[in-house]
Amino acid sequence: MERKEWPLWEVFVRSRNGLDHKHCGSVHAPDARLALQVARDVYTRRQEGVSIWVVQADHIVASDPDAKPELFDPAEDKIYRHPTFYKLPDEVNHM
């Protein structure tokens, strides 16, 4: 029988309620239930989380790093989108 490697899952942990889930690494597991179990053992041995998401790695669609300029550079010269662009009189500058 040809041996099959357990699929790779990406792990996201919410450290406490009120915060986003944050990517923290990956694990191998045969299915979703075991992926959660393994992620708990590997990434939350010190109460680092209150909630875990696991997503099979090949289900994640990522942007191409080489497309960085066309995706993200157009925002570079739109400095008027930031509040600091606007210089207001001192008396009202912290509105």
């Binding site: 041996r3 357990w6 045969p30 299915d31």
Partner: peptide, 12 residues
């Protein structure tokens, strides 16, 4: 490892 994978495949 093999049994867990076989079980996961069957369940799927």
């Amino acid at each position: 490892r093999e049994a867990a994978m076989a079980h996961a495949d069957k369940a799927a």
